[in-house]
Design a binder for these strands. Sequence first.
DNA 1: CCTCGTAGGCGTACGGCGTACTCCTACTAG
DNA 2: CTAGTAGGAGTACGCCGTACGCCTACGAGG
Lengths: 204, 204
Amino acid sequence: MPRPRSLTPDRLAAAALAVIDRDGLAALSMRTVARELGMSPMGLYRYVSDREELEGLVVDRVLGDLDTTPPAADAPWRDRIETMVGRLRDAVVRHPEAIQLTLTHRHRAPGGLLWSETVLGILAEAGIDGTRRVVALRALHGYVTGAIRLEHLGPLAGTGTSAIAALPEDRFPYLTQTARTAGEVGPDQEFFGGLRLLLRGLDG
Amino acid sequence: MPRPRSLTPDRLAAAALAVIDRDGLAALSMRTVARELGMSPMGLYRYVSDREELEGLVVDRVLGDLDTTPPAADAPWRDRIETMVGRLRDAVVRHPEAIQLTLTHRHRAPGGLLWSETVLGILAEAGIDGTRRVVALRALHGYVTGAIRLEHLGPLAGTGTSAIAALPEDRFPYLTQTARTAGEVGPDQEFFGGLRLLLRGLDG
DNA sequence: CCTCGTAGGCGTACGGCGTACTCCTACTAG
DNA sequence: CTAGTAGGAGTACGCCGTACGCCTACGAGG
């Protein structure tokens, strides 16, 4: 009966993501997305009820190309978890300007839920059950999101390291020394190094 | 020569924090803080150059009552780290509405730096050096900030758990089951349980 | 074929935001 | 006493999210 809808939620998400990728997260607004689509600002409200909902669509899209199929079962379970974590990190980092959005809305996106489901399966196969599994999943979530945030929005990314290196050495001997050493450690080594600490602790 | 300043940065931070604690983070604006202080909106700009700088002052204040003195040296080093992490968590959570602010600006506040310094000292005493220490500190940062965020802003806080429990059980068998088990795990058990996984992995 | 209900699309408007700029006032160090 | 600075108020601009109302194009029911 009605006039057909001229936009899909996915096209809307694509437009929003284009704005973010091009002009940064701060540039995201109902108005800029509407401009991107060549329609009037208020037009968006027929597809989302809210800016929040639009953000949700963006996250759906970012996590849409997150591979959540279980990795080859013959690999050790810790390697499989690393694979899953690496996939998540890759998908998130592929849109650096959207990281904040992705991490805060991750739990509402289908992709994020499927990811958790797969990880829980691996943990189960590793013999981790009950409350131990709950704690393990949450610890992984906490570490992964925290570490990604740290890597891309935190103090050691960009200007932060030099600021720390400039601290008074007598009051912050360890911190200044550590900042110097930090230069030798690449992002991947740091990220997966920390993850392996956590995975090692999951044993026994 | 000049007329004396009528405000201290700390009073400004206190006013901003009062607004946040009372009306939530979304209510924080130059205008509301000015109202809180009974002055005109533009008056604030003689004390801060920026909203960002005001947020920094707030974080300074929140982390101001964070105890960064090294814990009693006779305790095992892992317990001492737990103490430090617990103190940070307590200080951050004392102003729940400001958590987002506190965690994102933590690295610029003196309290946050002192905390890192103390933690690095403990790690050093535990014989952890060089790149291993860098990785350890970053992993701790990542986990702690991620876990606090998860606990207070994430999916399992508030409405999230029930949303997960309502997922189709055939597509998310592990997730729905885990959500049920999650009810039995208290926040502290979860937080420190995850932390202990990490600390256990730091050995050897 | 006509008509009617719905979705599309546009424009206007409101209250809030951060902040640039201007003007006058009150104070105090010389 | 005077000069110079900080305090304080006001106005203004260009953003923001979004409530609301109007006309238009379409396609299914009569």
